[in-house]
Design a protein around this nucleic acid. Structure first.
Length: 498
RNA sequence: CGGGGCGUAGCGUAGCCCGGUAGCGCGCCUGCUUCGGGAGCAGGAGGUCGCUGGUUCAAAUCCAGUCGCCCCGACCA
């Protein structure tokens, strides 16, 4: 029926469409079949299913800790924003008005002023900050909120771009430009640490060009990751908003010297899009691969038996392992998340395929022969490596293997990214050929002219993903602009993007 | 908004040209046998054929309209 294209081959064929055959179809099939999400009755919206939401919850938990550790507090601002608020900052309204959903009726009556469903919350938040801040002593104000937002996109894709999505948006107010700048950079660093440390998804950080920056920001910074089709995914952004919103919403304070000044703001956000990034960074032709730190289940135990007698023995042993892991404190308070797949009427092989599709990092096969030897067979999802492990040291063994998987997944993703990155001085013809073909990240010189940026975009669909931070720049800096050949003022990272 | 594809059981589909008992595979339920890489047999449940109208003795099938979804392009996290 309606899902025929994407769910084709799903019911009759057990295998997924391969990444090489059709990356896009592969992505949709993985998301649907691993039950991360499903389409909703409303166009462009999605339902996040328990498997997907479990990953998001772990992302949230970790990020929330990181925000708290950097001094932020959570708050919640309303979904509805007076339409006039959106109009108070010129660039901002231009950026968001086209994709705003507007509520015109309530309680059966036409509203006096339409309400915008937040596409982002700068306007409502800074209008409230204005009420709360009087003195420099009230600053910095460091707030985060977890929320849903709505942007009426023309084309949507599960997790990557949906009409409604979940995210966090940090909003801060500071006394000086430099302090705001420091905050914007700090949170970009937090994002990078999280993406590399937890999603095992390496990112390039850097500054957005004027063409790509947030509507209303002074400067925008982003984390750019490379997906397996060699396209870039903007996985997180952080903005130095300058005084633009402070001026629009009269967010001012009295300084130490007694003068009245506008505050300096930042905002920064990451969304459920990261789940899509996880899929496209780590998934393979068998399905999803979830990095252990984000996996709601880290280890699944699959019991193997013939007779009822064997069944009860093996299940007893499996439950004993679960019990011992609940006691085992070798990982501090963070216990190993283990699940016993005791479903009947399913052969072990069928269970293996299913857990592989869902990307659970480790599988412990447990049969009568294993029990006789006090062992289990441990299988890594990422490498599919299979080895016997002793049940007497199972906690240590699992914990160590999980942390190895986490580390090696990042290393593998990093290798893949570097293998598809070009830093040599590249001719424009070669660049165009690359963008039409295999794609990838290209580091090249840029004269700084918006015209060159636009021409390249029209020509090749590639855009400047960011002006990379120093550590990502090439050892021998490019000297000429990729497009016009004039002297380069800055090194740019070019790629086709999601 | 342009181009393409498609709406028949939970999923995938056949049937539509040429109108006449709605079929198949997967999944689901029950039972028995199975179980170290996607089990077998037997029995069973499950359908407003997207919706509305028209033609006809009779519509999944023909005609008109309408709604929706997916994919590919122009905007965006």
């Amino acid at each position: 029926m309606s899902l025929s294209r994407t769910t084709a081959r799903m019911a009759d064929d057990k295998k997924l469409t391969t990444r090489a055959a059709d990356f896009s179809a592969w992505y949709n099939e993985v998301v649907l079949r691993s039950e991360l999400a499903d389409y909703s009755p409303v166009r462009g919206c999605m339902v996040i299913r328990p498997n997907g939401y479990g990953i998001w919850e772990r992302m949230q938990r970790r990020l929330d800790d990181m925000f708290k550790a950097t001094g932020h507090q959570n708050a919640y601002f309303p979904l509805f924003i007076p339409e006039s608020f959106l109009h108070k900052e010129a660039e901002h309204v231009e950026g968001f008005a086209p994709e705003a959903a507007v509520v015109t009726h309530g309680g059966g009556k036409l509203l006096e002023e339409p309400l915008v469903v937040r596409p982002t919350s700068e306007t409502i938040i800074y209008s409230m900050f204005a009420k709360w801040v009087q003195s420099y002593r009230d600053l910095p104000l460091l707030i985060n909120q977890w929320a849903n937002v709505v942007r009426w996109e023309m084309r949507t894709r599960l997790f990557l771009r949906t009409t409604e999505f979940l995210w966090q948006e940090g909003h801060t107010a500071h006394t000086t430009h430099d302090e705001a700048e420091e905050e914007a950079r700090r949170m970009l660093g937090v994002y990078r640490d999280f993406m590399e440390g937890h999603i095992a998804m390496p990112v390039i950080t850097g500054q957005k060009t004027d063409a790509e920056k947030f509507a209303g920001a002074l400067r925008t910074y982003s984390c750019e990751a490379m997906m397996q089709d060699n396209r870039a995914l903007q996985a997180g952004t952080s903005h130095n908003l300058g005084q633009n919103f402070a001026k629009a919403f009269e967010l001012s304070f009295q300084s130490e010297s007694g003068s009245t000044e506008f505050a300096w703001n930042t905002s920064w956000g990451v969304s459920t899009r990261m789940v899509g990034g996880l899929v496209m960074t780590h998934g393979d032709d068998l399905g999803l691969r979830v990095p252990p730190l984000l996996a709601p289940i880290e280890v699944v135990i699959v019991p193997i038996y013939r007779s009822d007698e064997e069944r009860s023995k093996v299940l007893e042993a499996a439950n004993a392992i679960v019990g011992s892991l609940a006691e085992w404190a070798g990982r501090g308070t963070e216990r190993i998340r283990v699940h016993v797949d005791a479903r009947e009427g399913m052969k072990p092989g069928a269970k293996y395929y299913e857990w592989e599709l869902r990307g659970i990092p480790l599988r412990l096969e447990l049969g009568p022969r294993d029990l006789a030897a006090n062992q289990g067979v441990l299988v890594r999802r990422d490498t599919r490596e299979k080895r016997p492990v002793s049940l007497s040291t199972i906690g240590e063994d699992l914990a160590e293997t999980l942390s190895t998987i986490q580390r090696e997944m990042l290393a593998a993703a990093l290798d893949r990214r570097e293998a598809h990155s070009v830093r040599d001085h590249i001719t424009y013809d070669r660049f165009r050929e690359l963008m039409e073909g295999e794609g990838g990240f290209v580091y090249a010189g840029w004269c700084g002219a918006g015209a060159c940026e636009t021409e390249i975009k029209n020509d090749t669909k590639a855009t400047i993903r960011c002006l990379p931070d120093e550590e990502f720049r090439s050892a021998d800096a490019p000297t000429t602009c990729l497009k016009c050949g004039r002297p380069s003022t800055v090194e740019a990272l070019w790629a086709k993007a999601y």
